[in-house]
Amino acid sequence: MRLSCPFCGPRDSAEFTILGDAGVTRPDPDAPDAPAAFFEAVYLRDNPAGPHREYWYHGAGCRQWLVVGRDTVTHEIFDVTLARRP
């Protein structure tokens, strides 16, 4: 499998590490329901069969965190964007 890094171009998947669901955001730690929200964010993850957005890190390349749109069934990669939102 190869990922097209916005900086480095198409590179072998061995250069990347996956973290997981990019749809999860870090909850507000000061909200009254923070413990439940953090528990949800850290432990209760979906495992969809089909399109998925994931965080990948190009550790052996540009060291950027990327958001990869990937189909978990066909392994098709739709797009790769920088995780940092300007």
């Binding site: 890190y57 550790g59 950027q64």
Partner: peptide
């Protein structure tokens, strides 16, 4: 070492861009 580097990059690029 590598894991902390990756973690700091996550914090600054993803959580606090």
């Amino acid at each position: 070492a590598a894991r902390v580097m990756q973690h700091l990059d996550f914090l600054r690029q993803v959580l606090r861009p």
